[in-house]
Amino acid sequence: MTITTQPASSAKAICSRAGVRRGLLAALPFLLSNGVAGVVMGVAYRGVGLGFVPSVLFSVVVYSATAQAVTLGLWAPVPPIIPMAVACIATNARYLVMGAHLYQIFGKLRKRITLPILFLLADASWLMTSADAESNDADIGYLLGANVPMAVGWMGGTALGYGLPLAPGGPISVAAALLPAAFIVTLLPTQWRGARSVLPWLLSAAGALLVGSLVSPNWAMLAGGAVGTSFSMMRGDNA
């Protein structure tokens, strides 16, 4: 139903400069959205008394808004490393699923090419790459290119936010936070498969809302997507 990504055996996976350029241009709006979110994170790090260098280092090395926000809540003068690591695993476990899916697309490429690119894997770049692989050659250059504006925005935003006397909030911050979801919305028409998409999509949305409300927003996307995809599988849909 939703995607026609070929299985690894028949897929022609490449890594091209054209793909890098295409991904970079497509992800440019994330420079703003991740930048604003990074600014908020920088302001928050300054608020708990973390220095400038560790604040920026956090965003460079960990590079995960959810994990950084959760571990920030656990911050103490002597950081509790084990509870922080557990929280990081809980919030970032979804990357395991994303990585397994990317293997379906890029499994034939050499690991020395794919593994470094995965350092900057993000929810949005994964979703964009999945959609791109449907309409173009499976090109991991696209993932690399899409990662760049997101990472620059996040890391640069953290540094900027730490240095500027800003407070989070305001209409522009709210609107900028929406951009990743709005970007994914623009991909939806390419995924529409007519009436066969209706039920799986409704189930996906309902599952996400339920899990987001009752369990955790971090798991809403995966849980909702799993519900809709399970229904598609039981119905016998083809990829």
Binding site: M1, T2, I3, T5, P7, H101, Q104, D123, L127, S130, A131, E134, L178, P180, A181, I184, V185, L187, L188, Q191, R193, S197, P200, W201, L203, S204, A205, A206, G207, A208, L209, G212, S213, P217, A220, M221, L222, A223, G224, G225, A226, V227, G228, T229, S232, M233, D237, A239
Partner: peptide
Amino acid sequence: QLAPGNLFVAFVAAACL
């Protein structure tokens, strides 16, 4: 292989929530 479209919808729903 079937998951991405459903994940897009779930991602947007969670963001709206």
